[in-house]
Design a protein around this nucleic acid. Structure first.
Length: 772
DNA sequence: GCGCTTTGATTTTTT
DNA sequence: ATCAAAGCGC
């Protein structure tokens, strides 16, 4: 029975599964069965070697990867899978710090700041140390600080090694920023890693505990780890040295997030006894696609040669298509997908990939125009929406009133007479007293006794307003102690006046209210957890797991996705759009050879996602921020040999639209009928979309149904479906253009007449009626 | 202190 | 084009 775990594996894969003792480096080419090796290796540790799942840690880079790992191990290990640690690096560190952070003086209820929170605190720090935001953009400073923390450089270290004036400035901000974080009892994403490292480094007894626990440790996507992450892994595995890292340097696409490809080299020197295993057989793609990929990646200087090969068929040529502009490009893609559908491909077999999210727009519009159902992965995250962040800020304050970022975010939303002037005064006071803003109010106005007005006299009116907010938070915090999470949310919404504010005052109020209800819905999942722990757990999920998980939505749709997000996925048919200089090598990478190599790897990642059919499209003109600019073909197109391609490929130096060859050629006019394989990867849904105007994701339950407004169908059941005409109490008549199950509810997207626009509504809440 | 209008930056990718 | 911060009148 245990041999099942080795069955069907090639020699190298088998070796990777069986090598459980000592350090291992697995270099896994695209489509080489990496995920299977990782899961089987863990199962092998448990089932064959008798290692307790509790003693195995596996960290991944994204939530998606972590979830997939757990899902695959579930059927193999059964209930034992629960004991396993399989999570992202950041979640892992958050866990460690909640448990043992007290050694560093960390309060258990620390808040976690995302990039937006981080930026706002950096802006504040800049103001406080007199750094002009015009001269030094907050973004640049944020990136510098983040980069330092991800390279294990703390404030002190940074101060010792300043190279120039900019470093000088960054250092000043860094110092103040860290102080503000401490005062707010908050950690940013980078701190989760950095502080965990400090904890293990400075407290050997804590490190020892984790070394003993994680006898076996694995890192997936090792090429995307940064220096700090790798250092943490080294500290944890110091004792048993059972560290297994898996990665592919050619797929390293996160250096901008401070991932350091050199970790792979360091690994070899840190663990000289490491066994190196290369997985070079590709099971995914046709020979044509694999060869194109190799020719594409070859020009990179910083790489280790790999000899990828496949036993798959030669397949059909790669199709290169030129269009005039992005609208035409999108139209071509949609039309081509319709044609493939008629040939028997399922829409879920097909993905359209692009460099930047902005490119999805033209594609979405084309999909909507032609009634092509699509799933937009990523984009503006659910938890990033204003109203959701506001509510989250209230909840964070209940847990940790010192959280200044959250305090500033909502203390005057809805308005309560706490204006800029008051906040400036309060901030100055807080800074003088070295305390959080909330604490400063306590000091000023804590008791009904005389305020300590000698310190910094505030106008009585301001004081009253501040005290009012303090009382609001303290009151809710007191009252919610015994309440369920959902009840707490209701209490916050009501008492803070936020509900009234959204419903009556804010623009786009109805949609935003629906979003809050959806947020409330996710809180429902925590109903089985004790009230005092539920809030902490919920907030942690909100900060670290930003993709909501809509497994229910299993409709037949095409996928629109960025190249970055596509890593690790595979599709029978892949379109990569925007193969132009300045788009696919991105404009910001044109001058830096290292960044250019990363762009090339990104293209490589895209190409290697394809199993059967690959389309590369480019345009002559592309609109950017309103203006249309001429574009020349991506250098990457020229690196793919002509013999491997077909399609309307004009001379690559040609720029004029007139040079466009007419028509398109079909993929393989030969006998080979495309095989219709199931998509082997589940896509996470990005969650419902932000407050913007257009429909977000358009995934009808009735797959093949065209969604053009006006085509209504005979009504069947009570539930609404695409094409139904409906009436809304406020918005009037409209047509359902999409539906999506969310939990027990159904989210319907409705296009209303009379300029009311497109709205997303939850069926159970929205006053919707079926119309004739 | 608040809300409106103008201005300026913004967009690469994500934990 | 879109959205956040800054400026200005109430």
């Amino acid at each position: 029975m245990p041999t099942d775990l080795l069955h069907g594996l090639n020699k190298q894969q088998r070796e990777a599964v069986e090598t459980v003792n000592g350090p291992v480096l697995i270099v896994a080419g695209p489509g080489s069965g990496k995920t299977r090796v990782i899961t089987n290796r863990i199962a092998y540790l448990v089932k064959v070697c008798g290692v307790a799942p509790y003693r195995i840690g596996a960290v991944t880079f994204t939530n998606k990867a972590a979830r997939e790992l757990r899902e695959r191990l579930e059927p193999m290990l059964g209930h034992q899978a629960q004991e396993l640690t399989a999570t992202t690096f950041h979640s892992f560190c958050a866990l460690v710090l909640r448990k043992d952070g007290h050694h560093l003086g960390l309060d258990k209820s620390f808040a976690i700041y995302d990039s937006a929170d981080q930026l706002s605190l950096i802006k504040r720090a800049m103001k406080e140390v007199d750094v002009d935001a015009k001269q030094f953009t907050p973004g640049a400073i944020q990136s510098a600080i983040s980069s330092a923390k991800n390279q294990l450089i703390g404030v002190e270290g940074f101060g010792l090694n300043k190279q120039n004036y900019f470093d000088e400035i960054v250092h000043r901000v860094y110092e103040r920023y860290d102080a503000l974080l401490a005062q707010s009892m908050a950690l940013d994403f980078d701190d989760l890693l950095f502080k965990s490292h400090t904890l293990f480094d400075k407290f050997p007894e804590v490190a020892a505990k984790y070394q003993e626990r994680y006898v076996h440790f694995m890192i997936d996507e090792f090429q995307d780890t940064n220096v700090t992450q790798y250092a943490i892994a080294r500290l944890i595995t110091q004792k048993y040295r059972n560290l297994c890292v898996v990665g592919d340097p050619d797929q390293s696409i996160y250096s901008w997030r401070h991932a350091d490809i050199r970790n792979i080299l360091s690994f070899k020197s840190d663990f000289p006894e490491a066994k190196v295993i290369a997985l070079e057989e590709n099971y995914r793609s046709t020979q044509t696609i694999l060869e194109a990929a190799q020719r594409l990646i070859e020009p990179n200087k910083q790489r280790v040669e790999k000899a990828l090969y496949t036993k798959n068929d030669r397949g059909v040529p790669i199709i290169v298509k030129e269009s005039y502009n992005e609208q035409e490009e999108a139209q071509y893609v949609v039309k081509e997908i319709e044609r493939l559908s008629r040939q028997g491909y399922r829409k879920s077999d097909i993905a359209v990939m692009y460099r930047v999210n902005a490119q999805s727009r033209a594609l979405e519009e084309a999909c909507m125009r032609y009634g092509m159902p699509y799933l937009l992965v990523g984009t503006v995250r659910f938890y990033q929406r204003q109203e959701v962040k506001d509510l989250t800020a209230y909840l964070r304050l209940l847990e940790n009133p010192s959280d200044d970022v959250s305090f500033l975010r909502v203390c005057n939303v809805p308005t309560r007479g706490i204006g800029q002037r008051t906040l400036d005064d309060l901030q100055r006071l807080a800074r003088d007293q070295n305390m959080s803003m909330y604490a400063a109010i306590e000091m000023l106005a804590g008791d009904k006794d005389q305020p300590l007005s000698t310190v910094a006299p505030l106008p009585a009116r301001s004081l009253t307003a501040l005290r009012g907010f303090r009382d609001l938070i303290a009151g809710i915090a007191e009252e919610c102690r015994t309440l369920s999470l959902v009840d707490t949310i209701d209490l916050v919404l009501k008492k803070s006046g936020y509900k009234d504010y959204i419903q009556n005052e804010a623009d786009g109020g109805d949609e935003r209210w629906e979003n809050l209800l959806e947020f409330r819905n996710t809180a429902n999942e925590f109903r089985d957890i004790a009230p005092d722990e539920a809030l902490t757990a919920f907030l942690e999920q909100v900060s670290l797991v930003n993709d909501t998980d809509n497994v229910g939505a299993k409709s037949d749709t095409i996928t629109l996705i960025t190249l970055h997000q596509a890593k690790g996925l595979e599709y029978p048919v892949v379109f990569i759009v925007g193969m132009e200089e300045g788009t696919l090598p991105h404009i910001r990478s044109l001058t830096d050879p290292e960044e250019m190599e990363e762009e090339r790897r990104l293209a490589y990642v895209g190409v290697t996602r394809a199993k059967k059919l690959l389309y590369l499209t480019r345009v002559f003109r592309r609109g950017f921020q309103g203006v249309s600019e001429p574009k020349i073909p991506s250098r990457f197109l020229a690196d793919i040999p002509k013999e491997l391609t077909s399609g309307s490929q004009s001379d690559l130096k040609q720029q004029s639209f007139a040079s466009r060859a007419p028509g398109w050629s079909t993929p393989g006019g030969q006998s080979s009928r495309p095989s219709i394989s199931a998509p082997s990867v589940r896509i996470e849904h990005s969650g419902p979309e932000p407050t913007r105007t257009k429909i977000s994701s358009n995934s009808p339950q009735q797959p093949q149904q065209p969604q053009r407004p006006g085509q209504s169908e005979a009504p069947k059941t009570a539930a609404l479906k695409t094409g139904d005409r409906v009436r809304h109490k406020k918005f009037g008549e409209g047509i359902v253009t999409g539906t999506k199950p969310t939990g027990a509810d159904l989210e319907v997207t409705v296009a209303f007449k009379d300029g009311a626009g497109v709205k997303r509504l939850l069926l159970s809440f929205a006053p919707l009626e079926k119309a004739e």
